[in-house]
């Protein structure tokens, strides 16, 4: 009940911010439309709808990091967390309260993305269910990044780090907008050492129904999700003690 109360409050704060809706939902959809129009005029295999949509749905999750980090950082800044820390709540209530509501929002964002892609010509198939299912571990990774950043940064810093840095890093190093083989070398090795490209390739494989192709990407995503979540929990607890 206590976790639910916190989760409802956090979901309301995120969903009621028009900027969140504009960026979290609007921006990925605009990208889908725009790149589909480009693809219709000048065919580029990278922007074929079945290739593009998994990437855009993963890219959209970087806004979930921004939303959750901003919310936590703002709560820390305006003393609301201080008030809640004096209530009979445990650290588990706080961590679940901040992470649980963002995961369904992220999944909903993914569902809408695939829904729009269907309208733009994506072939309907049961593989869409796999793609939506596999977005869950990716969402956990992005939400954990939000918890981590929100625990150590101020709300102004969050804007720079999550709003600019993370969205760019996750865009450039994910193979969504260009083939990483075109750059190759260190750039490609760095990209494959990070989880973003693995998340995109896992989604692409799922959408094609190539279930064996989701490996080893799923392990990379799960590994990063667990590691980042563990770090985020430790840093959240540390700032809680520092109150």
């Amino acid at each position: 009940m206590k976790t639910y109360t916190l989760a409802v409050r956090n979901a309301r704060e995120i969903l009621r911010d028009p900027l969140n809706l504009a960026f979290g939902l609007g921006f990925p959809l605009v990208l889908l439309f725009l790149l589909s129009v480009i693809q219709a005029n000048i065919p580029v295999s990278m922007f074929e709808i079945q290739h593009l949509t998994p990437g855009v749905s993963v890219f959209g999750l970087s806004f979930m990091t921004l939303f959750s980090a901003t919310l936590i950082a703002k709560d820390r800044g305006n003393s609301l967390l201080q008030r809640l820390y004096t209530a009979p709540l445990s650290s588990v209530h706080f961590i679940l309260g901040y992470t649980l509501p963002v995961v369904p929002i992220a999944v909903l964002q993914c569902v809408i993305c695939y829904g729009v892609a269907l309208a733009l010509g994506l072939e309907p198939s049961v593989n869409l269910l796999w793609a939506v299912l596999l977005i869950i571990p990716v969402s956990v990774l992005y939400v954990a990044l939000g918890l981590l950043c929100g625990s150590v940064l101020t709300d102004k810093q969050v804007g720079g780090v999550c709003g600019a840095l993370l969205t760019n890093v996750s865009a450039w190093l994910s193979g969504i907008w260009f083939d990483l083989d075109l750059v190759g070398g260190v750039f490609k090795r760095v990209a494959y050492a990070l989880p973003f490209v693995h998340a995109v390739e896992m989604e692409r494989a799922a959408l094609l129904g190539d279930l064996s192709g989701i490996f080893p990407h799923l392990w990379w995503v799960l590994g990063y999700a667990v590691a980042v979540l563990a770090a985020a929990v430790l840093l959240f607890l540390r700032q809680m003690k520092r109150q």
Binding site: Y4, T5, R9, N78, R83, L84
Partner: peptide, 25 residues
């Protein structure tokens, strides 16, 4: 505790803020 700074959830209504505290208790 009523902290030094006003500690309310800005995006919620006054009623929802009160419901939040009731819920966490």
């Amino acid at each position: 505790v009523s902290p030094q700074e006003t500690a309310v959830a800005a995006g919620l209504t006054a009623r929802e803020n009160l419901e939040l505290i009731c819920g966490v208790h």
